[in-house]
Design a protein around this nucleic acid. Structure first.
Lengths: 229, 229
DNA sequence: GTCTATAACGCGATAGAC
DNA sequence: GTCTATCGCGTTATAGAC
């Protein structure tokens, strides 16, 4: 089927190129010539570059959301409470299930996710929040009882700190691993990074503020006179 | 002095615009018109857009590196060992000292740092590593005895996980705070985020892998058959 | 040092033949 | 569905008057 081939070739090429260079830095000319299709094909099949970007995210995230949903169903059926690290492993397992064990593909996935946060002029973030918000809420619903000592606000921030740790390091995994190797000679593959990330995120998510400094009363941390001039 | 004015106006405008939209998404036209200077001024004073980007980072990081160096000198003179959270506060204090308490400026700083990792085609990362590597190494030299139970490799990864958490969340602080506020009605300023980040990073950095899974022997975490096709 | 004007090019998107 | 050709625009960078 010629059409499907073309659409997928475009998606494959664009996905890799966007992850590598960013959206604005990747032209339709580069995408179509890499994909071996005609320049006009992107506009014919997707309508615009922006729509192509959304299509890539949907192709990435739809099956992942399904896999996570399935895992969540199973976890809720089992009905035994899960620890934070169990939930992180559930997530990791879903990613592996959908995108395989290829380092390039996982790295690319995380790069796109990071770009969605920084480069998207809002159009993507809103779209993704709407489309995958319910799965995310279900996940948080299981995470909630795993750390009962935290307030909702603690949990919100700690979750995003952990997300940042994952996105940043997995995005740059190759560069970071190269840096470490040149210093120590030790090679680190992406699976090892994930295995380190899980305990980091787990203990980070459990953390909370010293109550004294949280109230701004004691000497701990910072307590500024005034904000955002 | 007319020249210095022009140069600084360009730097101010470009710094804010780059942080807000990214490098490729910000044109010299936008920069110069925002700065109220002529279109040709960037090329006259800096030579190219790429050189302008480097100049912005140098203006940002040079005084910060000085402030950190000064703090490190003082800490080493005191000669009492510092905990991880002390070191993170040292860093935070330096940032506040140099860039003030403005939320916009700290957010911008972190955005630029994040962009340097993801958007720079390598030219920036190499340059910054060379210019500020020694300060970074000194900092790690103090961090090292604060977590003696970690191997160098543990410390390397945990440090970068923590860096990712900070860069990601502070970059997107406004958006995240808005998200939280629409859910809970609670407002969070950047200082509060930093006060939450410090315990998160502190306990994350201390974390380490379950030895069984680290060796790939036991059932913990993931142990994949093969890697990066 | 600062301006206007413009060169030289790459971009996204589209029209229209096949 | 795929192609070529091209439009219209925005980009970085520069030449040359002031």
């Amino acid at each position: 089927m010629a059409q499907k081939d073309t659409v997928e070739r475009i998606l494959d090429a664009a996905e890799a190129l966007f992850a590598e260079r960013g959206f604005a830095e990747t032209s339709l000319r580069t995408i179509t010539s890499t994909a071996g299709v005609n320049l006009a094909a992107v506009n014919y099949h997707f309508g615009s570059k922006k729509a192509l970007i959304q299509a890539i995210f949907v192709r990435y995230l739809d099956p992942l959301a399904d896999a996570v949903t399935e895992e969540l169903n199973q976890a809720e059926a089992d009905d035994k409470s899960l620890a934070i690290s169990d939930l992180l492993m559930l997530l990791t397992r879903s990613v592996y299930k959908v995108h395989g064990h290829s380092a390039r593909r996982i790295t690319g996935f995380m790069r796109l996710l990071g770009l969605a946060y920084t480069q998207s002029q809002g159009h993507l973030r809103g779209y993704l929040g709407e489309r995958y918000g319910s799965v995310f809420k279900r996940f948080v619903g299981l995470l909630r009882p795993a750390c009962p000592e935290l307030s909702d606000i603690d949990l919100f921030w700690n979750t995003h700190f952990a997300l940042g740790a994952a996105v940043f390091t997995l995005s740059n995994q190759q560069a970071l691993a190269a840096m470490l190797e040149s210093d120590t000679g030790v090679n680190t593959d992406i699976n090892q990074v994930v295995n380190r990330l899980i305990p980091f995120m787990t203990s980070g998510i459990k953390s909370h503020q010293d109550p004294a400094s949280a109230q701004g009363a004691a000497q701990g941390y910072f307590n500024l006179p005034n904000e955002s001039h």
